[in-house]
Design a protein around this nucleic acid. Structure first.
Lengths: 219, 219
DNA sequence: TGCAAACTTGCATGCCGTGCAATTTTCTAG
DNA sequence: CTAGAAAATTGCACGGCATGCAAGTTTGCA
């Protein structure tokens, strides 16, 4: 829909993206080496060779910096979905997106984050916001393609798709936590599988859970 | 499942809940009269006749205080669902919950909040956290009833149900914003209807959006 | 009635997030 | 290549947040 500036590697832009990346890297490095509690705008800025004030010119908070990869990944997903032709249904499109989506450069930090999120809800909030923005974008995308006073349906649908993604990430992260063996490559394969499974749950009407619950009436 | 202290109106408990309520009321009153920007731990505490320090003994932030009703309402919903017999399927149960659920005392502030959330993302975050906690509880509830290595399915399902609820609230709030006429009673009826519709979308496999998108291939 | 436990309060501290003005870096035109 | 414009970085200051701690004050219980 929008052509994202195919060529503009002016010096200024390069410096800005470099600085931005440096801050994010510094934040993650410190997170891994010294833990979440140690994170300070001051310390991260210093590690990124920037002043504290400049840090805040780029990010409104430490959490925002840590969630940059997540934000990018989710925005990217919606963008890819937006590019796809309108003549395939959304769930199929979602599958396509998932397959193409997963950039290790963004997933690594995302995984790292998930390990800390359970213990520090502060961090979780900004990430929740990223998922929420994703849902909003998706809702608009759906409404734009089927605009007939079906706003509620569109919103529910969007929530389900994004919810499936979130569920997949959550489950994936939990499995990783219990079983931190696998190599990076395998991790990503696991995630892809989990994401595909989650979307399949949506496509199949609804999980076997329903029937099971019904059948399960006390013997 | 858990018996929530049927009788314990000791003086201390009463005082604490009174103080807690006073803080929440003070926060909402100031929100309506002077706007979000004016909210300060200091000012809210003063309005509730408590010291600033005591405010922080009850809530970790202004946002947490403002989200108390939301939190209560969602936790209440899950609790009601938990009480229901296992031999009805979850979507039917959800409908039941929705019908019984909606306590005006909690909904009023929730509606008020929704009007401010769009303009102040700070506030949205804590509310997102409340929804997320709701999803987690629901996931555990589902897993407990159908425990067979279907954690992912359970999580997806929970996300969908809660997502439908969130979608309903969002849509409802948006409609209210465009059209702030109705009386309080009507508002709640609208919400009930919207919630029921949202859940119906889930039950009906999936919204007509899918077929529509497929049929809609460029003529 | 008196003591222990629970609750409140003030104080102090470190960090956050932002407006502002000065400084440095990058771009552009001549 | 250079001078000035535009953009980015920096330091400073300020108000507010959130929490530990060490008093005070209220409530419960024997």
């Amino acid at each position: 829909m929008s052509s994202p500036d195919t060529s503009a590697p002016t010096r200024r832009e390069l410096n800005k993206t470099a600085t931005r990346a440096a801050i994010v890297d510094a934040a993650f490095h410190q997170l891994q080496t010294h833990g979440y509690e140690s994170l300070t705008a001051e310390s991260v800025a210093e590690a990124a060779n920037v002043s504290r004030r400049t840090f805040f010119n780029y990010f409104a908070s430490i959490e925002a910096a840590l969630n940059e990869p997540t934000k990018r990944l989710l925005e990217n997903a919606v963008a890819v979905l937006d590019e796809l032709d309108t003549d395939i249904d959304l769930l199929s499109a979602a599958v396509t997106v998932v397959k193409s989506l997963v950039d290790p450069k963004l997933l690594e930090p995302m995984a790292e984050l998930c390990l800390h999120i359970n213990t520090h809800s502060q961090m979780a909030r900004v990430q929740l916001e990223a998922w929420e923005n994703c849902t909003d974008s998706l809702t608009e995308l759906i409404i734009a393609r089927a605009p007939q006073g079906t706003e509620l349906a569109a919103s529910v649908f969007a929530h389900c798709i994004v919810g499936a993604g979130k569920a997949a990430f959550t489950t994936w992260a939990r499995e990783l936590e219990e079983n931190p063996d696998p190599t990076d490559g395998l991790r990503i394969d696991m995630l892809r599988t989990t994401l595909a499974d989650a979307i399949a749950q949506l496509r199949d009407g609804f999980p076997s859970l329903q029937q099971r619950a019904a059948h399960l009436r006390k013997a």
